[in-house]
Computed example of a mutant assay.
Amino acid sequence: MSGYEIYGALGSPYSLKVRAALRAKRLTHTWTGMTMQDRERVMPNVKAQVIPVIRTPDGNWTNDSTPFLLGLEREGRALVPSDPKLRFVCLLIEDMADEWFMKAMFHYRWAYAEDAEWCANWLMFDSLPNAGRASVENAAANIRERQISRMALVGCTPETAPIIEASWKRTCRSLEEMATGPVRFLFGDRISLADIALYGQLKVMSVDPTPMAWLRADVPYLYRWLDLADDASGLEGDWLEPDAAMASGPVKALLAQAGDTYLPFLKANAGALLAGNETFEVMLEGQPYAQGVFKYQVKCLETLRAGWNALDADDRQVIRALIGEGAGILD
C-alpha cells in the first residue's frame, strides 16, 4: 500500500476534516464512503467505534483525527504554524471546533423535524447502496430515533438550544469576516488545521436544510469559502507574520469566544468529573448550559494546559490579553 486509506462518510464532519487535511498536505490517499458492508470489515480494527477510520501505509489503523493529523506534520505541507504563539492558537481553535462547535451540527441535524428526516435518509442512502428506497427509509427511521435519543447526552436539549445556536452564529460571523478579508484563511493564505476543523463541521451543515438556509442568507461568503477549504491542494500561500496574525479580527474574535465559552465549558466538565458528578451546569455567553460529563474533554483541557505552559511568558501574555479572563483556566 502506497498511501493512506480513509473510511468515512460524507455526513461525518471528522471524515471530511481528515480528507481535506490530506488533500491540503498533498499526501497520497484514497477515500471510501463506508457502507454497512465495509463496517463489518473495517470497524473491528479500532477500539472506539467512530469514524473516520484510517489505515496508514504501514498497515496500522486509527480513528482519532487530531492526534493522527498532528502525527503527520512532517509529511507533506504543514498545517500548523511553526511560531509558538500561532501554533497554540491554531490548536485551541481546532479543539474548540471539534468539541464545542460540533454541538451545533448535532443540534441542527436532530432538533428540527425536516433536518432529521433529510439527514437520516441521506446517511442511510450512503450506507446502503442499491438497497432501494423503502429499505433506506426504514433504516433511516431507526437511526433518526436513536440519534434523537442521544441528544441530551451531548447537551443538545430544548433548554440549551438558544446558547448553541447563538454561539454557532457568533462563530460563523467571525468566519465571514475572514472569508471576505485580505487573506483566505485564519493565519494567512495557507490553510491550517484550525480552518480545516471548522470546515468539517460547516461542510455537513451546508447541506442540512435549516443551517444551510441561514448560512446562505447571513454568511454567504463563508458558505462559498467551504468549497475553497474542501480541496486546498493547489493553493499556494504563506502564513502571516505572527503579530499580523494575532491582530486579525477573526482570530481575536475566536480567541475571545474560547475565553468566555469553550474554556469555561471544559473547566465545568472537568470539575464535575473530579467531584464524581454525572452532569454539570455552567453559564456561557450569558445563558445556562447543562450536559453529561465527558472524560475525553478532560484530556482536551489537559492537552491545552500543557501547550499553554510550554509557551514562554511573553507569548502567554499576548494570548491572555485576547482570551480574556478565561485564560486563567489554562494556568
Rank of each mutant, 00 (worst) to 15 (best):
C156S: 09
K17A: 09
Q49L: 12
M283V: 12
R74V: 08
A120N: 06
I163T: 11
M96N: 04
F101P: 03
A141V: 03
D115P: 10
S2W: 09
D227W: 15
A139H: 09
R55F: 11
R173G: 04
W31F: 11
S149V: 06
P81H: 07
G8D: 02
V282Y: 03
R144A: 06
S248M: 10
A268C: 04
P158Q: 07
A272G: 12
M178H: 11
Q297D: 09
G286K: 08
R109D: 00
D260Q: 15
D331F: 03
L255N: 02
A113Q: 11
M102K: 10
K169P: 11
A120L: 04
G234D: 10
G292W: 07
Y112T: 10
G307H: 13
K169N: 04
A140T: 00
F125P: 00
R184K: 15
C156M: 05
R224L: 13
T180N: 12
W168I: 14
Y108H: 13
L215S: 07
M1A: 15
V80H: 01
N63C: 06
G286Y: 14
A310R: 13
A268K: 02
A268S: 09
R23F: 12
D243R: 14
D208P: 00
A327I: 03
G181W: 02
F265I: 01
C90S: 14
A78W: 02
L128T: 07
T303R: 15
A9V: 00
D189Q: 04
D315S: 14
P84W: 07
S65I: 09
S233W: 03
I329S: 01
T66Q: 11
T66S: 08
V18P: 00
K17P: 02
A232M: 13
A152R: 12
S174F: 14
G181D: 13
D208K: 03
V282F: 10
P209Y: 10
T35N: 06
Y108T: 01
Q287N: 05
P162T: 06
T180F: 05
L92C: 10
F88T: 00
M212W: 06
P13E: 02
L198R: 03
K85N: 13
A232E: 15
N60A: 05
K85A: 14
